Amino acid sequence: MAVKKTPRAAAKIDQVPWSGIRPAPVVLVTGPETFLAERATGALRDLLVAEDPALEVHDIEADQYSPGMLATLASPSLFGEPRLLRVTNVEKCTDAFITESISYLQAPADDVTYVLRHGGGVRGKKLLDTIRSGVGGGIEVLCDELKKDTDRIDFVQAEFRAARRKIAPSAVRTLVSAFAEDLAELAAACRQLLADDDQEITDKTVDRYYGGRVETNAFKVADIALAGRSAPAIVQLRHALATGEAPVPIVAAFASKIRTMAKVSSFRGSQGQAASQLGMAPWQVQRAQRDVQGWSEAGLANAITSIAAADTAVKGGSRDAHYALEVMVRVIARRGEDR
């Protein structure tokens, strides 16, 4: 069932991305991307510790909340140390938590930073609406999923920019392709590269660390096939399947590549216009234009047909899904031509 989202446009408080978190009496951290939420709250803690190393940190689980807990933790301490109250599971909170938090918002305690993490859903909506209305003087930190490759590319570039290090654009794309399913793993890969290599990060660097993972990636198989290298593509396909790559994502990777090529091939205009009107990054347009060179309309049609057949096969329509994948790879490597 689809999760109903609270309209953010109605908010009267500042809404900032996870990377723009800053101290405020109340900090509402929303969105489904757990890794970014943890990164944001960790950054906030570091900022507060930098202001006062005596910071006290208290963690509250909203789904296990007991009446009176907030008042106790927010009450003035003996030596007046600043406090950070971090609340998790607000999307599963108790009724007492909602009632007492709304009451607290009317007069937030001095030297207390109240952070509420809400992962999504309608539970606690009254509390969220109160914060968004401006009561309590809070801000909202948005931690949406990075679904698009362009978003993940921006993330990687920001990681290296923050470290004042250089990484080649092609190396960024390779990293994103290798860790497309897990943002935490992508961030960890960036940290390892930054820690272990003090030179500019290139494709060779990424391949040295993550070559095995990159080689078994579905998009890697597609790239080799699109380069017209049928035999190596089949070898990589078999290796990918043998190391756990599922058939369905492999077909999806080919479908994504061919679909993008078809869009670009039929577009008449500049690269910038194509990027804008097709909703793609300039590098995606450039790569698709390169990949589609030498393809005919009939070849693209045959490729699409072969992908559709493979998709049916890997979803139960054939007893030998792996063979169907190999047929698809060979058709793509021949640019869809019958020969």
Rank of each mutant, 00 (worst) to 15 (best):
D14Q: 13
Q15V: 14
P25H: 03
P25D: 08
P25V: 11
V29I: 10
A40W: 01
A40E: 04
L44I: 07
L44G: 11
L48C: 08
E51R: 13
L70V: 06
A71P: 00
T72A: 14
A74P: 01
L78H: 03
F79V: 15
E81T: 13
P82N: 10
P82M: 13
L84A: 06
L85G: 00
V87I: 12
V87G: 02
V87W: 05
N89A: 11
V90D: 00
E91M: 01
T94S: 08
D95Q: 08
T99C: 02
L105M: 11
V115G: 08
K125D: 13
L127S: 07
D129M: 05
G134P: 12
G134R: 05
V135M: 03
D151S: 14
D151N: 14
I153R: 12
D154K: 15
A158F: 03
E159G: 03
A162I: 01
A162C: 09
K166Y: 02
A168W: 15
A168H: 15
V172E: 05
S177K: 09
A178G: 15
A178W: 11
A180Q: 12
E185H: 13
A187C: 00
A189P: 15
L193A: 02
L194Q: 14
D198E: 12
K204I: 03
T216D: 12
K220Q: 12
A222S: 09
A233Y: 03
Q236T: 14
R238E: 01
A240R: 06
A246Q: 14
V248C: 09
A255Y: 01
K257G: 01
R259H: 10
T260Q: 14
M261G: 14
K263H: 09
V264N: 11
G269T: 04
A274T: 04
A275H: 06
Q277V: 04
G279R: 13
A298Q: 11
G299V: 10
I304H: 14
I307L: 12
A308D: 02
V314W: 06
A321I: 08
V331W: 04
D338H: 09
